[in-house]
Write a protein that binds this DNA or RNA. Structure first.
Lengths: 159, 159
DNA sequence: ATTGAAAAGATCAGAGA
DNA sequence: TCTCTGATCTTTTCAAT
């Protein structure tokens, strides 16, 4: 079962190929994309811009923390049943520069929070600071050893 | 406490500014970066390429699953203490197109696996298939409701 | 889809620290 | 030795047709 087979429900083959090629190499030009996909560069351009405007495709400059040697950790958090507190807490997380990711779950845990810091001691301090918020009911900390794959692609080999 | 203060231990000010600007907008040109940072476009280019070659910076075309309406989930997995089984399992995950992320932890859980599929039923099937591997000792499934922030930036507003 | 002007990308020899 | 600069040439982008 592949990428294409899932995305086929949402996009046509040419859009899927464009996404796949841009996932492999975000700097590929519209002209090259066109040759590979079988469209004029103008047509590719229109499709690409449409995908970007709809938020399906994002070209992102990502700092790979593990290649810098910066330690990071994931917090699993269970929140109290207070919508206002919950919203304030999430907004605080989004505004916090040291928070790399915030994902909401349905299930035992409410949030996954990924954060980073200079060293493990500071990482723990920041984690404790975050979970001391009154919106938090329970939590678990997991320190990251290594990320093998991210954004749908292996990040160990190649660019 | 900010981005810059953490990265200062690893990079100089100009590299940090380049990373930050590219994180905000991956399509900014070397010339504009140069004006903002105070370098010629050639100098910016050299720094950017160096950051990319060292794996610290990646410019990635990302498919934003939630903007496509594709459901995804995180599996927390505890592995058995068998190095060979463990390695085979991780390699299988990396090769699996439906697996979006694989992160290794130190702690109660060994792996975070993020995967996606057409619908929740298939997502569950694929999850069960993955955790039926003989390397797996225990697991938890968390379905994702929403991702607020990723790659160090809010993904709800803006590009 | 084609065109043309403006912008960006890529390369290089030489300056400067 | 390492980094920056400015000149030059190629390619891409982008809007108009």
């Amino acid at each position: 079962m592949s990428w294409e087979e899932v995305f086929r429900n949402y996009l046509d083959d040419k859009d899927i190929r464009i996404l796949k090629l841009l996932n492999q190499d975000a700097n590929i030009s519209d002209a090259k994309l066109g040759k590979l996909v079988g469209l004029s560069k103008t047509a590719v351009r229109l499709r690409r811009v449409k995908l970007q405007n709809s938020g399906i495709l994002k070209i992102v400059g990502v700092v790979v923390l593990q290649n810098l040697g910066i330690p990071y950790a994931d917090l699993l958090v269970k929140l109290k049943n207070d919508i206002v507190l919950r919203e304030q807490f999430i907004n605080k997380l989004i505004a916090n520069d040291l928070v790399y990711e915030v994902t909401e779950y349905m299930g035992d845990w409410d949030l996954l929070i990924r954060l980073f810091h200079n060293n493990i001691a500071k990482l723990k301090d920041e984690s404790l600071k975050i979970i001391s918020d009154k919106a938090v009911q329970d939590y678990r900390i997991s320190y990251v050893v290594k990320t093998y794959k991210a954004w749908g692609k292996s990040i160990l080999s190649s660019i």
